[in-house]
């Protein structure tokens, strides 16, 4: 798993075929991130709502479980799950294992953010809506969500971008996403600088504009 540091060389063997290889790996990164973020957000929304509504019951059960996923390094979670699955008879490839772990990880982070958002806007709004004579379900579905969404969205973007970047860790299971591909290419071509530059630029080009836009929205919505 740990690569030996290559010695620098002036011989350039970086070809367009290698670039294609990197491109495919980048698509893998996008794919595994998109699926996990999508599924994890869905689960996280439900968990977050449960944490907010279920108070005592959820605080005692769900909260500590989700907390574990925020207190153990993702890389340990990945290795652990990958080696645990066969024990209970599941045959999973690195991609599937990666998706499952990243999804749960995302869900734990999103639940935390959603609960915070609901708590910050929920109480007074609930009261206002109920005093207008709305039913519990009416205000749960039509009043609170649009406003909670504003409170949660910027942090959610942060979580999503974090997961996108953290998806690089699925490489420990041998899954060839962007950073794993870079590592393979570096070992083969001995061109660490240009390859890392490409990989870094990809993540940056994805993350930076989105992060900026979220920050802009946060500022706009704050007033």
């Amino acid at each position: 798993m740990s690569a030996t540091a290559p010695t620098a060389t002036f011989f350039s063997s970086f070809s367009s075929k290698d670039l294609l290889f990197l491109g495919e790996a980048a698509l893998n990164t996008l794919q595994i991130s998109a699926i996990s973020i999508g599924l994890g957000t869905l689960a996280g929304l439900i968990f977050g709502w449960l944490l907010y509504e279920g108070k005592l019951w959820a605080t005692l059960t769900l909260a500590p479980i989700l907390d574990i996923f925020r207190s153990v390094p993702l890389i340990i979670q990945l290795v652990l799950f990958f080696n645990f699955a066969p024990i209970i008879g599941l045959r999973l490839d690195p991609f599937q294992s990666g998706i499952i772990v990243l999804t749960i990880y995302t869900a734990a982070l999103v639940a935390h953010v959603v609960r915070g958002g609901l708590e910050s806007v929920g109480e007074p709004l609930h009261r206002a809506a109920r005093s207008l004579g709305m039913t519990y379900w009416q205000d749960t579905f039509f009043v609170v969500p649009p406003i909670a969404l504003r409170a949660v969205f910027p942090s959610w973007v942060g979580v999503a971008l974090g997961v996108m970047k953290d998806s690089a860790l699925v490489s420990v299971l041998g899954y060839v996403e962007l950073l794993k591909a870079s590592q393979i290419l570096i070992t083969r071509t001995q061109e660490p600088f240009i390859i890392l530059l490409c990989a870094g630029a990809f993540y940056f080009a994805l993350s930076f504009p989105v992060a900026r836009y979220a920050a802009y929205l946060e500022r706009k919505w704050a007033v």
């Binding site: 971008l161 970047k165 953290d166 690089a168 860790l169 490489s171 950073l179 890392l196 990989a199 870094g200 993540y203 940056f204 993350s207 930076f208 992060a211």
Partner: peptide
């Protein structure tokens, strides 16, 4: 750079 690339990178 610190905020927009993976820590592993």
């Amino acid at each position: 750079l610190a905020r927009n690339t993976p820590a592993l990178f």
